[in-house]
Amino acid sequence: MSQARLELQHLSKSFGPTDVLADISLSVQPGEFVSILGPSGAGKSTILQLLTGASTPDAGQMLHDGQPLSPTQHRFAFMPQGDALMPWRRIIDNTTLGLEVQGLRREAARARVAPLFAEFGLAGFEDHYPAQLSGGMRQRAALLRTVVQQRPMLLLDEPFGALDALTRAQMQRWLAGMWTRHRWTVLLITHDVREAVLLSDRIYVLSARPARVAQEFQVPIDHPRQGAGSPGLAAIEAEILQTLLNPED
């Protein structure tokens, strides 16, 4: 197996008297799609806070390509919950925001983003404002803003959680197709078991707070990323749900 793109070794984190993470260890290989599942409040988003430098661990180590991850290094492209689009900026200028923050001039940023609008299903909407787009289109714009930064890894924090069930299912299948074409390295935080099974190569299930890795699941590499409902996937879903509902079994 190749060197892990990301490796967390025995991470622990507390906020005041509250222990949130306890001895978390996990890894993500280059080109792999990994999800983290757990009960609400288990500390899933805290892991992303540590990775993005918004917080620091109390113990443990974070490695990127085998090297210690410094809080000042920006190795990841992060997509938060919701689309976080700025309502006063047109879609073209929302998608270039990350590049502009990195120091790229607006015209150069637009030139990099513009060719991707068709692939993301946004062609013809470059000059629209976020309020003029559907929820799914807004999420695609937010993901475009994330991936165009060309970071080695994507961090996705429940990106489809605010969408209605039908739009969420459509976006999950769209993301599965995009991942198949581009083979991004992805770490997804989600509370949706079916979403994790549909999208992931591997899934880490966390116990309740303080969070520990209760179990790791390998999803068959030939599973149908474009669909769900096969007996194999249903069996994995059932096993994950059993782990979440009965973590001590």
Rank of each mutant, 00 (worst) to 15 (best):
L155Y: 01
L155R: 00
L155C: 04
L156P: 00
L156I: 00
L156V: 02
D157Q: 09
E158V: 05
E158Q: 10
P159H: 04
P159R: 01
F160G: 05
F160I: 02
F160R: 00
G161L: 10
A162S: 15
A162G: 07
A162Q: 08
A162W: 09
L163I: 07
D164P: 09
T167L: 11
R168Q: 13
R168E: 06
R168S: 08
R168N: 07
Q170G: 08
Q170E: 14
Q170V: 11
Q170S: 11
M171Y: 00
Q172R: 05
Q172D: 08
Q172V: 04
Q172C: 12
W174T: 03
W174A: 00
W174P: 03
L175Y: 00
L175K: 01
L175D: 13
L175Q: 02
L175N: 02
A176D: 03
A176W: 01
A176T: 09
G177W: 00
G177S: 08
M178R: 06
M178I: 10
M178N: 07
M178D: 10
M178S: 07
W179R: 04
W179M: 02
W179K: 00
T180F: 09
T180E: 14
R181I: 07
R181G: 13
R181E: 11
H182S: 11
H182M: 12
H182A: 11
R183V: 14
R183D: 11
R183Q: 15
R183L: 15
R183I: 14
R183Y: 08
